Deep mutational scan, measured.
Amino acid sequence: HMTFVALYDYVASGETDLSFKKGERLQIVNNTEGDWWLAHSLTTGRTGYISSNYVAPSD
C-alpha cells in the first residue's frame, strides 16, 4: 500500500469519511475511484474515505 501524509486537518462530513489531522500518516487502500480515496490511518487505526487533495506522498 502507498503511504501518504495529511497536509491539512480534515473533519469527516459523513459516516464513510475519515477524519484526520495534519501530519497524520495514511495508507491508501483504494485510489481508483476518482478524487475520494479509501484510506487507513496509521495513527488512529480507522478506515474511511479521504479527499486526495488533502494528502501528499510521504516518500
Rank of each mutant, 00 (worst) to 15 (best):
S19R: 03
Y54D: 07
Y10E: 03
S58C: 15
K22M: 07
G45M: 05
H1C: 15
T3L: 14
A39S: 02
H40A: 07
W36L: 13
L26G: 04
N30M: 10
L38Q: 03
M2C: 15
T32G: 09
S13D: 10
T16C: 15
V55I: 09
R46N: 08
G45C: 07
V5Q: 04
D17H: 14
L26W: 01
Y8K: 07
M2V: 12
S19M: 05
A6K: 00
D35S: 11
T47V: 11
V29M: 11
T44M: 02
W37N: 01
Y49H: 05
T3M: 13
N53K: 15
S13P: 07
F4A: 05
L26P: 00
E24T: 02
T43V: 12
W36K: 14
T47I: 12
D59H: 13
A12L: 02
G48K: 01
I28Y: 02
R25Y: 14
Y54R: 05
E15A: 12
F20K: 00
M2E: 10
T43D: 15
D17R: 12
R25V: 15
Q27W: 14
L18H: 01
M2Q: 13
S52G: 08
I28D: 00
E33Y: 10
L38T: 03
L38M: 07
N31A: 13
T16D: 12
A12Y: 02
L26T: 01
A56M: 12
S52A: 13
R46A: 09
P57G: 07
I28H: 01
Y54P: 02
D17Y: 15
K22G: 02
W37P: 01
R46Y: 07
A56H: 07
T43Y: 05
M2I: 11
G45N: 06
R46G: 06
Y54C: 15
Q27T: 11
N30W: 09
L26C: 06
V5T: 08
G23M: 03
N31R: 13
K22I: 06
G45V: 01
Q27D: 06
P57V: 10
L7H: 02
I28G: 03
V29L: 15
A56R: 10
S52Y: 07
S13K: 14
A39L: 03
R25N: 06
H1V: 12
T43M: 06
G23Y: 03
F20P: 00
I50H: 00
V11P: 04
R25T: 12
E15N: 10
S52M: 12
E24W: 08
T16K: 13
T3K: 05
L18F: 07
L42H: 05
G48Q: 01
N53W: 15
S51A: 09
E33S: 12
V5Y: 08
K22T: 06
V29E: 06
S58K: 07
A56N: 07
E24P: 00
Y8M: 11
N31G: 14
R46D: 08
M2P: 13
T44R: 01
A39H: 00
S58H: 12
S19D: 06
G23L: 02
T3V: 15
G14F: 12
V5E: 07
G48M: 03
D59M: 12
N53T: 11
V11W: 09
S13T: 15
W36D: 04
T47C: 12
K22A: 11
T16I: 09
N53I: 13
L42S: 05
S19F: 03
E33R: 11
G14H: 13
Y10P: 00
W37A: 02
V11F: 10
F4V: 14
V5H: 04
T44W: 02
R46F: 08
A6R: 00
K22R: 09
G48S: 01
T3W: 13
D35T: 12
A39R: 00
K21Y: 06
A39D: 00
H40D: 02
F4Y: 15
G48E: 01
S51W: 14
A12V: 04
T47A: 05
V5A: 02
T32V: 10
S13N: 10
G45R: 04
W36M: 13
V55R: 01
S19C: 05
K21S: 10
S52N: 06
H40M: 14
Y8I: 13
H1F: 13
A56G: 11
T32I: 11
P57L: 12
E15G: 08
T47S: 09
T43S: 11
Y49G: 02
V11L: 08
L42A: 05
W36Y: 12
M2F: 10
T47G: 04
G34K: 11
P57C: 09
S19A: 06
R46K: 15
T43P: 01
E15V: 10
S13M: 13
W37I: 07
L38H: 02
D9A: 03
T16R: 14
R46T: 05
L42E: 07
S58P: 09
D17I: 08
V11D: 12
G14T: 14
L7F: 04
A6Y: 02
Q27A: 09
V55G: 04
S58I: 15
K22W: 03
K22P: 01
L26S: 00
T43L: 10
E15T: 12
